[in-house]
Design a protein around this nucleic acid. Structure first.
Lengths: 244, 244
DNA sequence: ATGTAACATTGCTCGTAGTGCAAATTTATA
DNA sequence: TATAAATTTGCACTACGAGCAATGTTACAT
C-alpha cells in the first residue's frame, strides 16, 4: 500500500468498494488542493470541497479528520515505515549517514508521489506557496512534521539502543534532521521544483554533518537562479560550475 | 473585577488601565494553563477559562485570538527582538557562535519568565508534558516555533547579507537551530527542569557545530537523575570517563 | 467635581469545524 | 434473490472565532 497510486491505471486490485473509496479520497484531496491554491485556505469551506466532489459534507469527515488533513495527508503507514527504516537500514553505518540515506530516499518518493498526483508539480508547488501564508496551514504542516519527527526519534532510539526519554541525543538528531528536511522542502518549493529534491536533502545533510559551515556545497546550488538549474534526477551530484 | 492577585507586586508601572489589562491577561493565561494541565486541552472550553477568570467568553478573545494562543503566547515583541539580535549581536563572530549566544540568552529569559509566571516551574512543566499529547496543542506549539524560525531566518539573512529566497543557507541554519532549541526544550521539560535550560541549549549548539557526533557533552548531562541513562547499546558509546 | 472622550467589557448573532447517532443506500455473499 | 456488511447521508449538537452595537469604566480637561 505504500507506493502504487499513480495516475496509470495499472492495478484494479481490490474490490469495487476499495476502488471507489480510494477514488473519492483522491478526488477530495485533489479538489481541496485546487480550491485552496486558488482561493486561500480560509476561503474554502468543507462544504465547498464536498460539493465539488459530489459527496455530502459529512462524508468528507469520514475520510479526513480535518480540513487541513485533506491537504497534508497524515498517512500513518509511511510514517511507520520511516521509523523502521531509520532503525534498521544501512546497519553498521554511522547514524548520520544512515539517516541521510533514508531521508533522501523518502524525499524522492514524496516527490514522485506528488508529481503523480496533479498534472504539473511545479505549477502546483508555485500555487501552494502562496497559500502557505495562512497560519492554520502552517500549523498543520508543522504538526505533520512533528509526527514525522517523533517517528524518527523512535527509530533512532531503537537503532542506538537508548531511551529517548533519558537520552536527548535521538531527539536532538531527529529535530535537526526534521529541520534540514523542512528547509530543503521549502527551498525546493520556492524554487518551483527546478532542483531535484533528493539532491537538496543530500547536500543539506552533508552540510549538517560538517557542522553547517558558511561555505558548503549546499549554497552553491543557488548560483543559477534564472537558468535551468541542476537536473540530475538521481545520479551523483551534478556539476556545479565553479565554486566562488 | 477581582484583581487577580498575582502573588508578587513588583512593578506598578503604567496606568490603572494597563495594570488591569495585564492582570486579566496573566490571569487568563494562568487559568488556561492550570485547567489544561489537569483536564487536557480538548476538555477545557473557552467558556470554562473565562468563567474561572470572571470575564465574559467574548472578552477572552479580546486578549487571545485562539485558545491555543493563551497557552503559547505569541508575543511579537520578543520575536522582533530576536530577529534584531540574531542580525546584530556579537558582530564579527562566526554565525553559529553568534546564533548560539543569542539562543542561549533567549532561552534563559524564557525560563525566567516561566518561573515568574506560576508558583512552581518544575511542577508546571511536568503537568504540561502530560497535555502535550494532544494534536491541537502540538500543532500550536509547532506553529509558534515556525514564527520564531522565520524571524531567525530573516535575522541570519540580514547578518550574512543574502536573500533568504535565493540562498537556502539562512533557512537551513534557522531550521536546525529551531530543532536544537525545540529538542532542548522538550528534554528540559521532560526532565522536570532539573538541568538549567540555557546550559542544555549551549551544549546542543556546540554539538551541532561539531556535526552532531555520537559522543558529545550534550549526552552526558543525562547521567544525573535516578538511573544511568546511556546503557551502552551495541557499541562503546557511553561513559565519558574512559574517553578524554 | 463633573462632563466628555477614549477605551474596555459584554451580549448578541452568524458562519464554520467537527462529532455522534441512526436511517438509508450501496456492495458483497449465501 | 435474500441477507449481511459496509458506506453514505441527514440531523442534532457542541464549540471556536469574528463582527457589531450597547454598556460600563478609566482618563483628562476645565
Amino acid at each position: 500500500m505504500t507506493l502504487a497510486s499513480t495516475t496509470s491505471e495499472g492495478e484494479p486490485r481490490g474490490s469495487l468498494r476499495e476502488r471507489k473509496k480510494l477514488a473519492t479520497r483522491r478526488s477530495l484531496r485533489r479538489i481541496a488542493l485546487d480550491l485552496v491554491a486558488e482561493r486561500g485556505f480560509t476561503h474554502v469551506t468543507v462544504e465547498d470541497i464536498a460539493e465539488a466532489a459530489d459527496v455530502s459534507p459529512r462524508t468528507f469527515f469520514n475520510y479526513f479528520p480535518s480540513k487541513e488533513a485533506a491537504l497534508f495527508g497524515a498517512d500513518p503507514e509511511r510514517i511507520a515505515e520511516l521509523r523502521l527504516r531509520v532503525a534498521h537500514d544501512a546497519p553498521g553505518e554511522p547514524v548520520l549517514d544512515a539517516l541521510r540515506m533514508v531521508m533522501v530516499s523518502d524525499a524522492q518518493s514524496v516527490a514522485d508521489e506528488l508529481s503523480g498526483l496533479g498534472g504539473d508539480a511545479a505549477d502546483w508547488l508555485r500555487r501552494m506557496k502562496e497559500a502557505r501564508s495562512d497560519p492554520h496551514l502552517r500549523a498543520a504542516h508543522a504538526a505533520q512534521m512533528a509526527m514525522v519527527e517523533r517517528a524518527v526519534t523512535e527509530g533512532l532510539a531503537e537503532r542506538l539502543g537508548t531511551d529517548p526519554e533519558r537520552d536527548p541525543y535521538p531527539g536532538l538528531l531527529a529535530a535537526t534532521a526534521s529541520g534540514v528536511f523542512r528547509a530543503s522542502m521549502t527551498f525546493w518549493a520556492s524554487s518551483g521544483g527546478t532542483v531535484p529534491l533528493s539532491q537538496l536533502i543530500d547536500l543539506a545533510f552533508r552540510a549538517l554533518a560538517d557542522g553547517l559551515p558558511e561555505r558548503c556545497a549546499f549554497r552553491d546550488i543557488t548560483a543559477s537562479p534564472g537558468g535551468r538549474a541542476l537536473q540530475t534526477p538521481q545520479g551523483d551530484v551534478a556539476d556545479r560550475k565553479d565554486n566562488h
